[in-house]
Simulated assay, not measured.
Amino acid sequence: MHKSALSQLIISMAIFGSVGFFSSRTGLPAVELVFVRCVCAFAILLAAWLLTGSFRRERWDARETLIVIACGVSNLLNWVFLFTAFRLISVTIAISLYHLAPILALIAGGLIFRDKLGRTAVFALAGCFAGTMLIMGAGFEGTAPSWKGMLCGVLAAIFYAATMLLGRSVRQTSVYATTFIQMAIGMALLLPFVHFNAYAGLVRSEWIYAVATGIVHTGVVYLLFFGSIRRLPSPTVAVFVFVDPAVAILLDVLVNGFRPDGLQTAGILLLFGSLLAAFAIPMRRTARPQAKL
């Protein structure tokens, strides 16, 4: 287990867990919000690429550049469908559907990268998935869910899984270049579809939330995320991306005043317990041999 990479993944997922909270306060439709994210993140990441001198050490490979471009397209579609889902269904249900992605990535990662799935990872992943499904199922009680919103959540999960797998295939291109190229692709593809009059009525607080999703939830998060997944196996990535819904649920409870019912509480406890087990058990195993020295 690469501890530095694992820490980066956990931090990035913890930050991203608040994206639903921020996006709901921007007052922007999905396409216009994603465009702001791309513009802000592109500026930050390009500046970091130049100021750190990373551009001098860049090694370009034609095949890998195509993978970076494909990753950028899948990432863009992931965002558009996710933020559309946030507008059509509750954040809790959208995030739960979105986290079908680790399951898809784990299965595909086993086939593509030949990753071995240990017993701890199997139980932790099953627990995380079961927990999110309990939360999602409870969210449907007494409601008429939007099937369009649910479809958007599933499509977001598919493209999120593709983004994770493609990101793991990038080895030579720096994290800075990988991410700012993806932001440039996002801006170029979205530009014909952006309704710029949507920005005219935004108040100051909405602009702050929108820009924050670009600088923090995109620029910072994607530097950490793409830097970490290159050095971690698929089972580890699949388990610890569930830090994202855990943070989203905490924000719902602590900030939005959400009060879970019995089924949701069981799902939350299962989710947090599985994450704790995934982190604690491997650390305990590595600590025992050290104690003998």
Rank of each mutant, 00 (worst) to 15 (best):
H2G: 01
S4M: 08
A5R: 09
A5C: 04
I10Q: 00
S12V: 07
A14N: 09
F22M: 12
F22R: 03
F22Y: 12
T26S: 11
L28F: 10
E32K: 04
E32V: 10
V34L: 04
F35P: 01
V36R: 02
V36G: 01
V36L: 10
C40M: 15
I44S: 13
L45K: 04
L46A: 13
L46S: 12
L46F: 15
A47P: 06
W49T: 06
L51D: 07
S54Q: 12
R56W: 08
W60H: 06
R63Y: 11
T65L: 14
I69L: 13
A70N: 09
C71W: 13
C71E: 11
L77Y: 03
V80I: 14
L82Q: 10
T84F: 02
A85G: 03
R87Q: 13
V91D: 00
S96W: 00
S96G: 14
Y98V: 07
H99Y: 13
H99K: 09
L100T: 08
P102C: 07
I103P: 01
A108G: 09
I112G: 10
F113N: 10
D115H: 12
K116N: 03
K116I: 04
K116P: 00
L117V: 14
L117Y: 11
G118M: 03
A121F: 04
V122A: 13
L125A: 08
A126I: 15
A126H: 12
G127D: 04
C128L: 08
F129H: 04
G131M: 07
M136L: 09
A138P: 01
G142P: 10
T143V: 14
P145R: 02
K148S: 13
C152R: 00
G153S: 06
G153T: 00
A156T: 02
I158F: 13
A161C: 11
M164T: 15
L165C: 10
S169Y: 03
Q172C: 10
T178N: 15
F180E: 06
F180S: 05
A184L: 14
V194S: 11
V194M: 11
R204Q: 07
E206C: 06
W207K: 11
I208Q: 02
Y209V: 04
Y209G: 04
T213G: 06
L224Y: 04
L232G: 03
L232S: 07
S234A: 15
P235L: 05
V241Y: 00
I249E: 00
I249M: 10
I249T: 09
L250E: 01
V253E: 06
L254V: 15
R259D: 05
P260Q: 03
D261Q: 11
G262N: 10
A266W: 07
G267S: 05
L269E: 01
L270G: 01
G273T: 01
A278T: 00
R284E: 02
R288D: 05
L293K: 13
